[in-house]
């Protein structure tokens, strides 16, 4: 699957991106070299605290501010203002997971720690808006705000750490060495070394649903409703376990109070705003997917959304409701 950065490069446009691990160079896409200015300071180098993460986020904020000012991310070299650029903020996620942070209730009232992280992030976005105005770029720049993921559970009373060894042990109880890989958060993605044993593993998991706090198991046909067949596309997990809401598979000593990775509303129902002073303002309540951001970006830049391979495969539509009004602000 190619990326928006590759489509932009092929159209002669300049792009930049900032994210939290060097491995995010994957946004370059299969060509491996589409983002002109990639900045990926490793987040694992800073403490997993809000006070450690905010200065880390500030590095990437400064990169974006430099780019808005017509420099590269370091601010030392002149560069075009990117056609596509942006970054991820991490402090809110860290605050959501911190045992002294998170939410106070099921209504998502933020703790003081989370409120502080939101305020810090808001302040950073304020700097970007001011910089765009200062550089006379505001009218020609669309700002898309969303989230890679949510965080679950919001309701602190639903949080439960379940031993991450339970499911792997159940898998290997069917046959020694059967588990190739388990990725566990508030979901368990299981790859088996012998795919003919899927049904046997599912039967074992079903027989131990209570112990493993399992809500739903996806395999076979139920898994293929959403994903490619793991027997022909081995990137797809053989089995996906969705736990009871609020459960996180982790070491029993884990202190985190929320995670992401799962399929619940708290995991996946994220913010999405598409903004420009020339737009007609509004609210869209229809169900949309963040996959629709990619073709929308290309459309806004006058590029062809159909140049994205995944748009063709999944028939991903441009976000509805974006229209330019007559009265500019």
């Amino acid at each position: 699957m190619n990326t928006i950065f590759e489509v932009a490069r092929d159209a002669g446009l300049y792009t930049a991106w900032s994210d939290k691990h060097p491995a995010y160079e994957i946004v370059n896409g299969p060509s491996g070299s589409s983002v002109n200015d990639l900045y990926t300071p490793e987040i694992a180098a800073v403490p997993v605290t809000v006070s450690g993460t905010e200065p880390y986020d500030d590095l990437k904020v400064q990169a974006v501010l430099n780019e808005i000012a017509g420099k590269d991310h370091t601010g030392t070299k002149t560069a075009p203002v990117p056609a596509i650029f942006g970054m991820n903020f991490q402090a809110v996620s860290v605050a959501q997971k911190d045992q002294n942070g998170g939410y106070l209730d099921a209504n998502a009232t933020p703790s003081a720690l989370l409120q502080g992280a939101l305020d810090h992030t808001d302040h950073s976005i304020g700097k970007m808006l001011a910089a765009l105005r200062r550089e006379n770029l505001f009218a020609n720049t669309v700002i898309i705000l969303s989230a890679k993921h949510g965080q679950s559970p919001i309701d602190p009373s639903q949080h439960l750490i379940v031993d991450k060894n339970i499911i792997p042990n159940l898998v290997n109880s069917v046959q020694a060495g059967l588990l190739a890989q388990a990725t566990e958060d508030d979901v368990a993605l299981l790859w088996l070394t012998d795919q003919s044993k899927v049904n046997a593993v599912v039967a074992t998991l079903n027989a131990n649903k209570a112990q493993a706090h399992i809500d739903t198991i996806l395999s076979g046909d139920s898994l293929k409703q959403f994903f490619n067949d793991p027997t022909t596309d081995s990137r797809t997990p053989d089995i996906i376990v969705l736990p009871v809401h609020g459960v996180i598979y982790a070491k029993l000593t884990a202190t985190k109070i929320a995670e992401h990775g799962g399929f619940s509303s708290d995991d996946a129902h994220v913010a999405l705003v598409v903004a420009n002073p020339r737009f007609n303002k509004g609210t869209v309540s229809a169900s949309v997917q963040t996959t629709q951001i990619a073709p929308s970006i290309l459309h806004l830049l006058g590029l062809n959304p159909a140049d994205l391979h995944a748009v063709g495969i999944e028939q991903t539509q441009i976000l509805s409701g974006i229209s330019v009004g007559g009265d500019e602000q």
Binding site: A83, F85, G86, V92, Q96, L137, I154, D266, V270, I297
Partner: peptide, 13 residues
Amino acid sequence: FHHVLLLSIDGLH
């Protein structure tokens, strides 16, 4: 438009 600034506030519901 000439520019798109994409921002992810990870975790933001």
